[in-house]
Every structure is written in C-alpha cells, then in structure tokens.
C-alpha cells in the first residue's frame, strides 16, 4: 500500500468528471425535471378548470331542469283549465240541446194530442151520428141535421 502516481491520475480524472457533470449532465437533467413539473402543474390547473366548468355546467343543467319543470307545470295547469272550460261549454250545449229536444218533443206531443183529439172527435161524432141514426131510426136529413150535428160537434 503506497501513495503513487495513481493519486495524481485520480485527481485529474476527478476534476474532469466533475466539470463534465457540471456542464453536460446536470443542466439537461434539471431542465427535463423542470419541464415535467411545469407540465404537471399545467395539467393539474387544467384539471381544476375542467372540474369547475363541470360543476358550473351541472348547476346550469339543474337550473334548466327546474325551469323546464315549472313550465311543464304551467302547461298542465292551462290544459286543465281548458279542459274544464270545454267541459262547461259542452254541458251548456248539452243543456241547450236538451231544452230544444224537450220543447220539440213537447210540441210534437201537443200536435199529436191535437191530432188525436181531432180524430177522436171525428170518431165520436161519427159514433154519435150513427147512434143518433140508430136511435132516430131514420136517416138524418142532410142539411138541418148537419147543422145540428155541427152544433153538437162544436160542443164537444
């Protein structure tokens, strides 16, 4: 074991390697790491921004949803109102028609009754005349009897 010329050789090699490291190894590594850190920082900031815009979008979406629900409710209410309106109108019209039908029916009944009364009267007259004829036993003279028949018919 001795101190020999390797001492100086190693010293020279040491100086050379430290200088090489200072110039060619340290700066590229430093730059590479800084670049990656910056990219990570920007990536994180972008992620933050994206998250925030997502939240904003979500709250906007719920707002729109709420408004849509309100409008839907309004439309439903209007529809209900229209329905009741229509129903009322239909009821009125139905009532009207009922009245009309009733009056028409009543009129018809009147006219029918009248007709029926007419017919009945005619039959009764005929029967009365026939009976009278039978009672009298003779044929009824036409003109004065006709006048008497008319008078009787009128009283009926």
């Amino acid at each position: 074991m001795e101190i020999n010329a390797t001492f100086l050789g190693q010293a020279v090699a040491f100086v050379i390697f430290v200088l090489v490291c200072m110039k060619y190894v340290w700066p590229p590594l430093m730059n590479a790491l800084e670049k990656r850190q910056k990219e990570i920082a920007t990536g994180l900031a972008d992620a933050e921004k994206a998250k925030k815009s997502l939240e904003l979008a979500k709250s906007g979406a719920s707002e729109t949803l709420r408004q849509a629900k309100q409008e839907a409710q309004k439309i439903i209410d209007e529809a209900n109102k229209r329905r009741s309106q229509i129903l009322d109108k239909a009821v009125e019209e139905a009532n009207l028609e009922k009245q009309q039908i009733l009056t028409a029916a009543k009129n018809e009944i009147e006219s029918e009754r009248n007709r029926a009364r007419e017919e009945l009267r005619n039959e009764v007259v005929a029967l009365a005349v026939a009976g009278a004829e039978k009672i009298l036993g003779n044929k009824v003279d036409s003109s004065t009897d006709k006048a008497m028949v008319q008078k009787i018919m009128e009283t009926l």
């Binding site: 001795e2 190693q10 090699a13």
Partner: peptide, 17 residues
C-alpha cells in the same frame, strides 16, 4: 519500498475509476 512512490501507477484501480 517507501510509502510514497511516484513511479508506480495502479492501472487497475485507475482504469476502473
């Protein structure tokens, strides 16, 4: 040998370094 011998060089260790 003395402890300081400037005429020898250890190629093995120097080469490895």
């Amino acid at each position: 040998g003395s402890i300081v011998n400037p005429y020898t060089i250890n190629i093995d260790s120097l080469g490895m370094t």
